[in-house]
Write a protein that binds this DNA or RNA. Structure first.
Lengths: 137, 137
DNA sequence: TTATTAAATAATAATAAATATCATTTAGTA
DNA sequence: TACTAAATGATATTTATTATTATTTAATAA
């Protein structure tokens, strides 16, 4: 297993598959989507295992939990980045802008009472698909 | 009731108290915190009513739902702003920077596939209180 | 390679969070 | 003041998440 994660944990099949799935599906899957995806390879995996591992791997810093419209989603992308979020359907995409990260961190230096270590900007709007659906109605 | 919200809804005591509470408590309260707060004035309010109204008022655009560490929180501040988030305790504070909003929106113009209407930057770090607690250990 | 052991899993039970139901009450309007 | 659609409170139901436990497994060392 890639030693990107040198975390001191047991690399069970279940964990490896969950991590692999999330690396191959950058669309911020939900618990159920992870479960369904991983089940294609490990047909006998328990949903409790998925829950426990998503929580565990997040605590260990191998995953990040995000939330759109009250729904938990997970991602394995640790390169600092931003998010494009559709207010209609909840779709979430990664978006890169080194420029914006730098700008934000410069502003962060002036903040008192908090020691800021990272930033991420959410861009809210409507995705192409939803915009086209709305036109048709 | 302030006509800031010209939304076409019934202004029941319950709704007014929930909105008032959230305007007076900008610390992004959870469902339970809203329930406990509002109950001081409306001792007979049902928790289901709090749930239903937080959802309803969010759909109507009078509230915004945010989420820290898997916990839903609500706010009534509609002036575009950013968030300072403590990775230790989950504390969340508003932070204003017109500058950063402008910069982000300029970047948003270049994004394809999404029509962006607003942005908000999250600043992650550690709050004063948590930093001091860590020192002591 | 095999034995050992702490930790992880699967299956299921238990909790907690959120929503639905429905008889009663109420805000907004005539 | 009366009317009515909508909201409420109380509770049941559903869904999401966590805990329990017997069994299995990954990592280590013999």
């Amino acid at each position: 297993m890639k030693p990107t994660e040198k975390a001191d944990i047991k690399y069970t099949n279940q964990r490896v598959e969950i991590l692999t799935f999330l690396r191959e599906h950058q669309g911020h899957p939900t618990v159920d989507e992870v479960y369904d995806g991983v089940r294609k390879k490990l047909t006998r995996i328990s949903k409790a295992t998925v829950y426990k591992n998503l929580k565990f791997l997040t605590e260990k810093g191998l995953l990040e939990e995000v939330n759109v419209k009250g729904v938990s989603r997970f991602e394995a992308n640790f390169i600092p980045h931003h998010h494009l979020i559709c207010r209609e359907c909840g779709k979430m995409e990664d978006f890169n802008s080194e420029q914006l990260l730098d700008y934000s961190m410069k502003i962060a230096e002036e903040i008192e009472g908090f020691t800021i270590v990272s930033t991420s900007t959410n861009f809210y709007g409507i995705c192409k698909k939803c915009r086209e659906c709305k036109k048709e109605t």
